[in-house]
Write a protein that binds this DNA or RNA. Structure first.
Length: 428
RNA sequence: GGAGAGAUGGCCGAGUGGUCGAAGGCACUCCCCUGCUAAGGGAGCAUGCGGUCAAAAACUGCAUCGAGGGUUCGAAUCCCUCUCUCUCCGCCA
């Protein structure tokens, strides 16, 4: 959510920056609502003030055993007018809030202006794609060839976009999460967390998935309680650790990591990546979240991105870092780096991590603040990034470390987590 | 699932219809005293949203005592609904 003051005082600038990300802000509606709000709110408060002072007088009169009937009559009259005004105000404020909740964050000045992913800017490339002296297979052929990946079974169980992994491939999946968590906790200073996979609508509102992106979520209705939602990313529970709290300035930065499954209904993406593990309704991810002082959030973004990169480097996977353009960023972000890993099976770089600074956008929705020595509570800045997507990392390992016979070399960093196995072979 | 207790400011905790935004304490900030890793004295110290304003400061209004409704001229305080926490019982991984 943007600061309303910004909209009131620098409306033109805000409109301009929102246009860069193709958000058409309904200016007329806003200004009309804002004018009404001001007028009705002032009237409401004035009436409340009158009523309060009358009530006080009544109290004083009664204390002195004086008659106060005429004062009470006056108060009743004021209350009638007040009722009307405050009802009107409630409606206006609700409308304004809805409007505000739907506005995406403003892009940072360092973000390139662009229409779509085509205008994203490559920042750096790390590692060189291996040259194969045979035609590399994609991960589906490799996984099914090893008899360790079973999409038919998954679709019998649950339908499209689910997967079953078996044997040492399932173990590799587990090894990846352990390796990532251990690296982030022991080397990058993150605190590991175990979190709920089902969260409330309010929590999702805090991080920005609601109200706008309900269609992307799996919703779990309950008979006598509010529905819960399956988390689309651990960013949601982790970032909401500071929901409605004022943290001590000394406690910043908070660095949190968690491994969770992520659930996405991806309603709009049917037809894309139908084959394989790339786009699933359920996938695992190790997430990185930082809660930081506003002055430090851009440094933190670089740092957090490097933490995700470290994982790819240790797994000996070539990748590139993309700075997303205004048209391709998520709604809550002011600046985002995507890490794209090289996939020989697709002959392309594909997203495996997305690292964003959300500045105060989520913090304002969550009312997440910190208190410094002297000053009033101030909004924290929040950042999140995948560190990294486990399923896609698995895909990348299969495709990049494959041998001509279809076996897979396990990167050194993972071998301790695989009981010393260095090669994945048929059916094992 | 059954029975009971509770939810107040950063924390602890008082407050059962009217000068209560809320005593007291802790923590914190400033000042004084002391002269030593203590203690004492004084002052300040909730959050959100408005208004005056370019803005800040300042001043001022409104709201907020788990949430939402209700009663009343007036609600932290009375009534209803809900949520959460704790204790006991049951069930259970």
């Amino acid at each position: 959510m943007l600061d309303v003051q910004l909209l009131r005082n620098q409306l033109d600038d805000v409109i301009h920056r929102l246009q860069q990300r193709h958000f058409k802000f309904d200016v007329d509606r806003f200004t009309t609502l804002e004018q009404e709000r001001k007028q009705v709110q002032m009237k409401t408060q004035e009436l409340q003030s009158q009523r309060n002072s009358l009530s006080k007088e009544i109290g004083q009169a009664k204390a002195q055993r004086q008659e106060a009937d005429h004062l009470m009559q006056q108060a009743t009259l004021i209350n009638e007018e007040l009722d009307e005004a405050s009802q009107k105000l409630t409606v206006i404020q609700k409308e304004l809030e809805e409007l505000l909740l739907g506005i995406p964050n403003l892009p940072h000045v360092s973000v390139p202006v662009g229409e779509s992913a085509d205008q994203n800017v490559e920042v750096r490339r790390v590692g060189t794609p291996k040259v194969f002296n045979f035609t590399p297979k994609d991960h589906v052929d490799l996984g099914e060839g090893l008899a360790l990946m079973d999409f038919n079974r998954a679709s019998l169980l649950s339908g499209a976009r689910f997967s079953v992994l078996k044997g040492s491939l399932a173990r590799l999946h587990r090894a990846l999460t352990q390796f990532m968590l251990d690296t982030h906790t022991t080397e990058h200073g993150y605190q590991e967390a175990y979190v709920p996979y089902l969260v409330s609508a309010n929590t999702l509102r805090g991080t920005g998935q609601l109200p706008k992106f309900e269609a992307d979520l799996f919703k779990v209705p309950r008979e006598e309680a509010e529905p819960l939602y399956l988390i689309p990313t651990a960013e949601v529970p982790l970032t909401n650790f500071v929901q409605d709290t004022i943290v001590d300035e000394q406690a910043l930065p908070l660095r949190l990591t968690a491994h969770t499954p992520c659930f996405r209904s991806e309603a709009g993406s049917y037809g894309r990546d139908v084959r394989g593990l790339i786009r699933q309704h359920q996938f695992d991810k190790v997430e990185l979240v930082q809660i930081v002082h506003p002055d430090k959030s851009y440094d933190a973004l670089e740092e957090l991105t490097s933490h995700a990169e470290a994982i790819l480097q240790r797994l000996e996977l070539p990748y590139r870092v993309m700075l997303l353009c205004t048209g391709d960023m998520g709604a809550g972000a002011t600046k985002t780096y995507d890490l794209e890993v090289w996939l020989p099976g697709q002959n392309a770089y594909r997203e495996i991590s997305s690292c964003s600074n959300c500045e105060g956008y989520q913090a304002r929705r969550m009312q997440a603040r910190f208190r410094s020595q002297k000053n009033k509570p101030e909004l924290v800045h929040t950042l999140n990034g995948s560190g990294v997507a486990v399923g896609r990392a698995l895909v990348a390992i299969l495709e990049n470390h494959q041998n001509e016979d279809g076996s897979i070399n396990i990167p050194k960093a993972l071998q301790p987590y695989m009981g010393g196995i260095s090669v994945l072979t048929m059916g094992k």
